[in-house]
Design a protein around this nucleic acid. Structure first.
Lengths: 349, 349
DNA sequence: GGAATTTACGTTAGCGCTAACGTTAGCGCT
DNA sequence: AGCGCTAACGTTAGCGCTAACGTAAATTCC
């Protein structure tokens, strides 16, 4: 391949600006970066000249020479789930405000994809890296640790994170919901969600749920494990399977998320099963969808925006070597809905 | 700031691998990149050695020296809308298969944010750039044009794109829906969507819709313009405004998207308004949500996955200077639902 | 069997920029 | 005048890597 200069159409380099301004390239570099050591007059002149010459700085060369970049890599399992798009959006804004550029990818819950992404990302020498969840391949952890790049795990709370961690305690969230449901008198819970290996956080919540029910001598059964995509259709399909697989349906059914719970509601509606009279339905996350339903799903609200905000602050603090803590655990909140018993009694006179 | 080497913890450089292997750095470079000119035996030896030394190549240095990077920048207005997350996901996968790394950002439908992003992106000298929609600031266009970076506009079909374009004809989509609705006998349509400046594509669809109705002597009125977020709640709120603002409700109401239409359905249900008997409800996009509803929304299905796939192929072709066309227009499909008249007659005997 | 290739390397010269450390002029102070 | 000090520059030496062009040996070809 012919070697053409990297700057498009042989565009202006810093040296061209320097020549035009009659100063050294260092003065131009300082002026354009806003670094002190240039008189105001010269600075403005250089900036105007650079614009005139349509000079576009090369982040490639700049980062290489400066030995650091302003990139922050963020990986999330999927964008399908509104949870991650909300967290991501908050973080991205926070990073931008601090002058960092976010580079982003999805991993489809596959640790090997995450591993490949981390490897590619490290090659760009980012200022920081954000991973979702706390289940990563050993090699991912090793690479990150050795790289000495500030790393933050978000969404789950980890006891011993790679570096930093901001998240919720999924076991506790499941446990709290379990207590709430047993408090309402439910005794035969079912669960519809993903396979354990697929989504470790979901499994932790299920474990918490089981634990709470176990204290009342109840087991969560059946636990139906679905293949992705775990959204509306998955919930509807799961409910179909549940109802067709048993003569003795549960008194409450918990789902991976609100979307699945909604799909299940539709299936129940079609079959003439009355919610919550015949069965309770419980989601997770407290998504937007819920706020427009005429019969709201009982769910657990997760502090997604707050999580993104806190995570960004913490990572930035670490990058500037000012971090005071390593982990932040955020609380979740049970949101009573109209798909479990209690409120039903209140609203039907 | 002290100047530490960029490679983390003074990690191995290509020279270290070369020294260990007893070859020149060029041989290492060739071996690791899979470029020919290295014997199989030596290649394997070098790769093993690099792994042993935990050598991590610097994309910064590599791209700078090679005068091109494997980055592709993608910007979408929002991730809130499943439309864009689907398109993005397909493209990302396609790019990855061809060895490109996707860098991504959201612009919140703000052209100035897009402009800033393009400027930052160009500084990284990416192999290609993907923008959503065809409404960009003059400066954005100028920068892109001058940069000579292959640029692709996705989602809308443009008559004269900056460079490449893959999308649907939004005016035609609106027009087709208009014809479909007039064919069903609707005469007093309303519309609930965003402000025109906010989302140009939506405005084009509305124009198409108006045009079709105009042919039958009907006007689309009222047109209710909402502020974001234009999702479930927006639809519900819009329907509230519509119903409270008139004594003579429309016979059919079209929405920006399926989510809004769904929110409106909930509002109607709460008010005892029967859909489609009292009013038709029409969405746009054919999202997943629709497939689980017991009464499906009439909508227009957009070929999102196909769009992402075709867009990626076209951009890659252009990058390797093998592009044969500049624009691809994809068809949309009206999806009859149960929220407009026709099917209702079929299903109720 | 000797010239013409081909294969497998090595050497050289940067890519475009910045950290670190000069250098110079100007200023206040004694 | 002579000293220290600072603001405003310039010079030097890379950052870590690759394109392009060597060069020597192995192979091919008529």
């Amino acid at each position: 391949m012919a070697r053409e200069p990297l700057t498009p159409k042989g565009g202006a380099k810093i040296a061209d600006v320097a020549r035009a301004a009659g100063v050294s390239i260092m003065t131009v570099s300082r002026a354009l970066r806003g670094v002190e050591g240039v008189s105001m007059a010269k600075r403005d002149e250089i900036i105007a000249l650079a614009r005139e010459l349509r000079y576009s700085p090369s982040s490639l060369a700049g980062s290489l020479a400066a030995a650091h970049s302003n990139l922050i890599g963020v990986s999330v399992p999927t964008l399908d789930d509104a949870v991650f798009s909300e967290i991501f959006e908050t973080m991205r804004n926070a990073f931008l405000r601090s002058g960092f550029q976010t580079v982003f990818d999805t991993t489809d819950y596959a640790t090997h994809r995450e591993e490949e992404w981390v490897e590619r990302m490290i090659a760009w020498r980012p200022a920081g890296i954000v991973l979702s969840g706390v289940d990563h391949s050993p090699r991912t952890k090793r690479m990150l640790l050795r790289s000495s790049i500030p790393t933050l795990e978000i969404w789950s709370h980890a006891q011993n994170p790679i570096d930093l961690c901001v998240g919720i305690d999924h076991f506790a969230a499941g446990y709290e919901m379990g207590q709430y449901l047993t408090g309402l008198g439910y005794k035969r819970p079912a669960y519809i969600g993903p396979r354990a290996v697929y989504d470790v956080r979901a499994q932790q919540r299920l474990d918490g749920l089981k634990s709470a029910f176990a204290e009342m001598g109840c087991t969560v059964d059946p636990c139906i494990r679905m293949a992705p995509p775990l959204s509306f259709e998955g919930g509807r399909l799961g409910m179909q399977r549940l109802l067709e697989g048993t003569l003795n349906p549960p008194d409450v059914c918990c789902f991976l998320n609100d979307h699945m719970a909604f799909g299940a509601l539709m299936e129940c509606e079609a079959r003439g099963i009355s919610i919550p009279k015949d069965m309770g339905v419980v989601g997770f996350n407290g998504l937007r969808l819920n706020s427009v339903l005429n019969r709201r799903i009982t769910t657990t609200a997760t502090p997604r925006a707050q999580m993104g905000e806190r995570a960004a602050s913490l990572l930035i603090a670490k990058i500037s070597k000012a971090a005071t803590v390593n982990t932040i655990k955020l609380p979740v909140k049970i949101v009573p809905g109209e798909t479990t018993r209690d409120l039903q009694e209140e609203i039907s006179p």
